[in-house]
Design a protein around this nucleic acid. Structure first.
Length: 403
DNA sequence: AGTCCACAGGAAGGGCAGGCGA
DNA sequence: TCGCCTGCCCTTCCTGTGGACT
């Protein structure tokens, strides 16, 4: 008897998606709603490139999911379609990516790789990388537009010297020009910049305001038409996704994620129409997945540290008043050392663990504030920012890793 | 007012991995 | 192949800090 391929059931199964790509944040539509003014501003700034003129650096800011990145990509795509006197090359770098923008070396290496160069992870002096980068650009007679997404992260990690070097180098280029488009969610970021960087980077500024629920609804409706089969998404579900995302400061990316994940959940359980329950499950799943992925990508010692924090936090539950189990650096470090010993790991030093605590804080997994206990010294008091039911998933993950 | 604690966090340096050039 | 150089991760050493305690 002939055996059937195990994937047949999936091939023949009817899908509720028409084109799932349309529902991903990376999809670039032909038209972007409610951003005409911002697109026009950016177009005007970039337009001189077509005549071979140099352009100003641009600083784009606005909260999460307000269309900063997609509008920038949209305008650059349009620009590249109309060839100008001098070739334009966009270099897109997401500064939040680990192992990409942690150091000056890695940033330069990433930009050179985007330009087609082969660069080792380590071994070369940083000034050699600078030299190669500028030679490469100058040799090829082009306008390089460097888009630094989440530029605030870059500044926090490696300071402003890198950007300052990039902006200053235009004086040395004979045949090419570098422009920077800095994108950030952090509205207060610009105020914290060094004056000399501020003056060179923020020559032009564009502010993206959050979408309201009605605008989000319209944006979603446009994507639903292409993304889903007919009559899969009801008005009620559309309203719910738009309303939930509007609560998240008008985050369109969040709204799209909600829709797509809701669809995936419905499809997996064999439903042909999206319901509000699918959206509820999707909302939980998105939050949960983001945290789990972040934790999984951490080095083993960071995970052990988090495990120690969760264990301490658990054993504190139900106790009234502050006991010696408070999540203070000393207690957490003690627990971490014990955990390392039981699992055969060599514990890192107090100094290093202190930095790891800072990193977990920056990732939004824990909150760590410096407090003074007077005569009993200064320390950091931590609290977990992960709530149930995600915390249960994290506990299970930790148990699997450290037993 | 001075002391003291328990760290925070800066600076310097060691070990390792990897590239370069002779 | 080998010595030298570099970046990265980590340790070691050190100074600074805020507020309770004396």
């Amino acid at each position: 008897m002939e055996t059937q391929n195990i994937f047949f059931q999936y091939i023949n199964k009817p899908t509720i998606f028409n084109n799932k790509k349309v529902l991903t944040p990376s999809f670039l539509p032909n038209k972007i709603s409610y951003r005409d003014k911002e697109i026009q501003q950016l177009t005007q700034i970039l337009a001189p490139l077509l005549r071979g003129y140099n352009i100003s650096n641009v600083f784009i800011y606005g909260t999460c999911g307000t269309g900063k990145t997609i509008c920038t990509r949209f305008v650059l795509k349009q620009l590249l379609e109309v060839s100008g006197i001098r070739k334009t090359t966009p270099l897109y770098i997401n500064c939040k990516m680990k192992k990409v923008s942690d150091t000056e070396y890695r940033m330069l290496a990433q930009m050179l790789r985007e330009l087609g160069e082969v660069i080792p992870d380590t071994g070369l002096p940083t000034d050699v990388l600078y030299k190669r980068f500028f030679e490469k650009i100058d040799r090829t007679h082009q306008n390089v537009v460097i888009i630094l997404d989440e530029i605030d992260t870059l500044f926090r990690k490696i300071g402003d010297e890198f950007i300052y070097n990039l902006t200053r180098i235009n004086n040395e280029l004979k045949n090419s020009h570098i422009s920077i488009i800095g994108i950030t969610n952090d509205l207060s970021f610009r105020e914290s910049l060094d004056q000399r960087v501020k003056s060179s980077l923020g020559e032009e500024e564009i502010l993206f305001r959050p979408y309201n629920a009605l605008q989000l609804k319209q944006i979603l409706a446009e994507r639903i038409t292409d993304g889903f089969e007919d009559n899969v998404v009801s008005e009620t579900v559309l309203n719910k996704c738009a309303a939930l995302a509007a609560q998240e400061h008008g985050d369109a990316r969040r709204a799209l994620d909600l829709l797509r994940v809701s669809g995936e959940i419905a499809e997996r359980i064999g439903d042909t129409i999206l319901s509000e329950e699918h959206v509820d499950i999707a909302q939980q799943k998105i939050d949960s997945d983001r945290i789990i992925e972040t934790i999984q990508s951490q080095p083993r010692h960071s995970q052990a540290l988090l495990h120690a924090i969760i264990s301490l936090s658990d054993s504190r539950q139900g106790k009234d008043g502050w006991s010696d189990k408070r999540l203070l650096t000393g207690n957490v470090f003690g627990k971490y050392e014990t955990l390392c010993r039981t699992t055969g790991m060599k514990p890192l030093t107090h100094r290093r663990v202190s930095d790891l605590i800072g990193e977990l804080d920056m990732l939004g997994i824990i909150s760590a504030n410096i407090i003074s206990k007077g005569r009993h010294g200064r320390t950091r008091e931590m609290s977990l920012l992960i709530n149930e039911p995600v915390l249960s998933r994290v506990r299970a993950m930790m148990a699997a890793v450290f037993t």
